[in-house]
Design a protein around this nucleic acid. Structure first.
Lengths: 334, 334
DNA sequence: CTGTTAGCGCTTTCAC
DNA sequence: GTGAAAGCGCTAACAG
């Protein structure tokens, strides 16, 4: 039925151990033997059973990507970045959506690890900051990397950009355009990046000598609807803002939609700014001014960090940074 | 190190075979024994190794979702639908993006199946209509279900809606609004649904006695940019259309964006219609008139069909249908 | 209803 | 450089 390492060894005229060596790219195999084995593998179209390799060996050739994020564009980019790096490594990616607020979060993650024997885990915000998840991972001593964590960047291996600076830059940009009353839509409370972007907004105002007015900073949940609601509240103020900076593109699109609905001319009557630079920023009208978060690159870098840990790499991404910190032991040696 | 079935059997005071029986919900285990085993499982927080179960048994508790679709909203919905059903079944989903045009498509799919021992495969358009993929799957005799295939719906188990009727309905809707010159943006040539929607558009025109004019049907590739380009071409015609129907929401958003750019008032000067009812349809301004494709439900139904085949189920979805056809043997008996 | 035995297809360990 | 033997953690096929 199934083609096994035995079939390959028979065709190649060597022992199964030698086939195994070739499969694992081990040294100490003569070129001649290696060639014969590779030919047999190709001839039989052999793909080794991951289940068998996992059970017998110390690696599973699988990693898990754990997320709880319902922004399709964002998750799509994260999956793509992780996937790309995994493919290079010949490793499979298990995409695992979870609910960070679930009381069984740690159990689910633990079960996933036990069942699949994954070699490593990648956490995407906001799972990056779920104490139960982090504790479970640490308890098991499994290697993991976080993408855009909100806290303790240096505590564990993580990859991120400077959200405070980015929000500061955007706010400053609006101030430089002459705006003095700038509305702000805060992100989802589960995401630590929300606080950072909020802080960056305040910092830029402070620097410019503009007072922070709580009524101008409205809560949101990173989705379109909450952006619309925030815009409604902001534009019903006696003293309206002339610009609104939303903490992500989805909410900025919502702001835009509300502005259109009430007949405002954007950007004539109101400037709208977003954050993330998802394709959404281009889809709406007019195209959003937005901070670029290099999600694809972050995901790729995080996965790379899982496979080839490097203690301190700094990638430049536009004017912002993607920093990678981590332990030194490579994944394969786990 | 790892908690195994042996540990459970020791704590529960039974043989490992009995633990296995409880794990697999087999009959012929006394309530008392079952309870003891379940207690031991809970106490030890035991999750059985999928690798071992796969290797020893005839199931892997995994299925693969294979797709080549770069519309984040669409794929997100498909993944969610499949995932939901898998979770109910205690089965893991392997998300596998591929390139349908790759010459190694069949090899990749074959390799995936050999490596992971997946119990079944779900194909999303356009992989549903890639001959190499279908041939490989059939050759191996592995169970698979297609989501929105473009051809031979009844040939293999598949789940879909009536694209022709849906496009016909939308076109008729526009005609009923008084439009006589209706532009059409054709979908990506890889997707068979593109032809069907195109045909539905023609059929509605025919029925209304409106001549089909090739210059009014422009090619597109299901992405925003191609929608914009098609709109530009259509609106530069001497005899402009008063409405444009794009074969999916992404392209409709592109049409909208171009219309705004050249100062048209939508829907006053131009009606724009889309297809799919992704959240995008709500995000743009004004919200798109669009045909609802029940992607989430299709994905769920397809996965269900994989687990619990039913020869002929018909789901109603709005005015359109989701039809499910398939063999009768249940997945688990494979 | 429950237990025993023999593998699944690989990697590990240790010979040669 | 290469091979033989043992076993990873489960399920299958039997026996009781």
């Amino acid at each position: 039925m199934r083609v096994t390492i035995k079939d390959v060894s028979r065709i190649a005229g060597v022992s199964i151990k030698t086939v195994s060596r070739v499969l694992n790219k081990e040294k100490y195999v003569s070129d001649e033997t290696r060639r014969k084995v590779e030919e047999a593998v190709a001839a039989l179209n052999f793909s080794p059973s991951l289940a068998a390799r996992t059970l017998a060996g110390s690696r599973s050739f699988q990693i898990a990507l754990i997320y709880d994020n319902h922004s399709p564009y964002y998750i799509h980019a994260v999956q793509e970045g992780v996937w790309n790096r995994c493919r290079e490594e010949g490793v499979r990616m298990l995409a695992q959506p979870v609910d960070v607020d679930s009381p069984t979060l740690a159990l689910e993650i633990g079960g996933l690890i036990d069942e699949t024997h994954v070699d490593g885990v990648i956490l995407s915000s906001p799972v990056t900051d779920a104490p139960a998840a982090l504790a479970e991972l640490e308890r098991r001593g499994i290697r993991f990397v976080r993408i855009s964590p909100g806290t303790n960047h240096a505590l564990t291996s993580s990859v991120f950009m400077d959200d405070v600076q980015a929000a500061d830059d955007m706010t400053t940009h609006l101030i430089n355009q002459g705006h003095r009353r700038i509305g702000f839509v805060i992100g989802h409370p589960n995401h630590m990046a929300s606080d950072q972007r909020h802080f960056g907004y305040r910092r830029a105002l402070d620097r410019a000598g503009i007072a922070y007015e709580p009524e101008l900073a409205r809560p949101g949940t990173f989705d379109f609807g909450s952006g619309m609601a925030a815009a409604e509240a902001l534009l019903k103020l006696t003293n309206k803002p002339t610009a609104i900076f939303a903490s992500n593109d989805d909410m900025a699109a919502g702001v835009l939609s509300y502005a259109h609905r009430v007949g405002l001319d954007v950007p004539q009557d109101l400037s709208v700014a977003g954050f993330d630079d998802t394709p959404l920023a281009q889809l709406v009208w007019p195209p959003l001014t937005t901070v670029r978060q290099p999600v694809l690159e972050l995901a790729y870098a995080a996965t790379n960090q899982l496979f080839c840990p490097d203690p301190a790499i700094v990638h430049q991404r536009l004017q912002h940074e993607v920093m990678v910190r981590g332990s030194t032991a490579p994944l394969r040696k786990s």
